[in-house]
Amino acid sequence: MAQYLLNELVKVEDNTLIMDGIEVFECNKDGLEMLKVMYDFTQQRKPFSLNDIMECLEIERTEDNVFAIQNTINYLRGCFIINEC
């Protein structure tokens, strides 16, 4: 399964994701929780996968949840916010 790390230039201020000083987008509550999980993994220099995120967030592996996480990962990858290892 693919593994990722958060870009080192990413910060979250209030509810806005900022990369290299540029506001990328505003996150909702779920998005913020997911970013926190990614941030914690990255701080430990530990690449994370879709399964790792689901486990940390303690959410069930339903079709909707898998889509939500995978789509977020794909989007963040497209924005260079996370990188595949």
Binding site: F25, C27, D30, N71, C79
Partner: peptide
């Protein structure tokens, strides 16, 4: 579209012009 891409990222994959400004 940039705004909605982020806002609804857990619900739908929105594509349009590009991803975000620094890119």
């Amino acid at each position: 579209l940039l705004h909605y891409c982020g806002k609804y990222v857990a619900d739908i994959n929105i594509t349009g012009y590009g991803t975000f400004k620094s890119e």
